[in-house]
């Protein structure tokens, strides 16, 4: 085996990646199960009711992690796109195929839980304000990516097109983040910011942090498992193709 030149290319080798995934998998999945159980029970039964929203505030403990995951999975897609376009990283395209549906799920759940929160609190399922619309655009970007990467008979062409879409669509991420500051929206501004203290009681912040960590670990575990499965599947395909080739050679001879 060739020596591995740097970090970027170390896990380009699918074998190396499989070893890493196998080592991390049990930690990720047990961590996810523990954090999610604690966080969901805490959020659903022990966290206090909000002074104006009452019990409905509990939707926050699933809505916010989904919003965070929808954005971070798309950031992952964009990074895969960059690695694939510039460095022709062999795992990046495979990863993009596997991350897309997971991120789309998170975006859909973010929109649905937000809608279930908006109807009792704001008095409407949906409004076309900047935050909601930019997240809907993110969901459609995911759908476009999922369709595009599988659209061509020759996989490399679809992967190239999807990588370009993922990179161009990354413009939506800062728009989602800052929409509540740049324009007035029905959606409230972020409670947790990098610059200031959170405008949230600690008794609500803790369960929120725990469910966020739990869902993040869970999604990491799912993506690692899907990517490992995809590597195994592509190896199986290669072996089958080679054996078919050998057999046809033999029958021709």
């Amino acid at each position: 085996m060739r020596p591995t030149p740097n970090l970027l290319h170390r896990y380009a080798n699918p074998g190396q990646f499989l070893r890493l995934a196998r080592a991390l998998q049990p930690w990720l999945s047990t961590g996810a199960i523990i954090f999610l159980t604690v966080g969901i029970v805490w959020g659903l039964f022990f966290a206090p009711a909000d002074w104006q929203q009452g019990e409905t505030v509990r939707i926050m403990y699933v809505h916010v992690p989904m919003a965070w995951l929808a954005s971070s999975c798309y950031l992952g897609l964009a990074i895969c796109g960059l690695l694939s376009l510039v460095w022709r990283h062999p795992l990046a395209d495979l990863a993009a195929i596997e991350i897309g549906p997971v991120g789309a799920c998170a975006a859909a759940l973010c929109l649905i839980t937000g809608s279930l929160w908006g109807q009792p609190m704001w008095g409407t399922w949906w409004v076309w304000d900047a935050r909601l619309t930019s997240v809907l655009v993110l969901f459609f970007l995911y759908l476009g990516h999922i369709a595009l990467i599988r659209a061509f008979d020759e996989p490399a062409r679809g992967q190239r097109a999807a990588a370009i879409l993922a990179l161009a669509g990354a413009i939506d991420l800062p728009i989602i983040k800052f929409s509540v500051q740049w324009w007035n929206t029905l959606h409230q501004p972020d409670s947790i910011t990098l610059t200031g203290a959170p405008t949230m009681s600690m008794t609500m912040l803790w369960p929120l942090l725990i469910t966020t960590i739990g869902f993040t670990l869970g999604v990491a575990a799912v993506i690692f498992a899907r990517l490992s499965a995809a590597i195994h599947e592509s190896r199986t395909r290669q072996l089958m193709a080679r054996s078919r080739l050998n057999r046809s050679d033999r029958s021709a001879a």
Partner: peptide, 10 residues
């Protein structure tokens, strides 16, 4: 109090 919405979301 909107438990059905909470239950649906979770």
């Amino acid at each position: 109090n909107h438990w059905p919405y909470i239950a649906a979301a979770y």
